[in-house]
Amino acid sequence: MEALMVELKQAIIEALNLEEVTPEEIDNDAPLFGEGLGLDSIDALELIVLMEKKYGIKLKDAAEGRKIFQSIRVMADYIAQHRTK
């Protein structure tokens, strides 16, 4: 799980162009939206694309995304259980 969380942080940094953020600076349990990384609605859509492109997970419901994108740890848990690639 630790390795997946590190991989996920790097993927998010690249996908969301967080140029001045390093994986070490992202707290596994910090909220991704609002506080924390301060992501916005376009970032949420980009994370949905990332989930499908990198892990083969299709999220069809925005409310589902809201739960999954709570933090890196929650995302990694979900990916570990549902990934198809």
Binding site: I42, D43, E46, E52
Partner: peptide, 9 residues
Amino acid sequence: YFPSPSVFV
């Protein structure tokens, strides 16, 4: 084919 919302915007 994975259209990027952040590029499209």
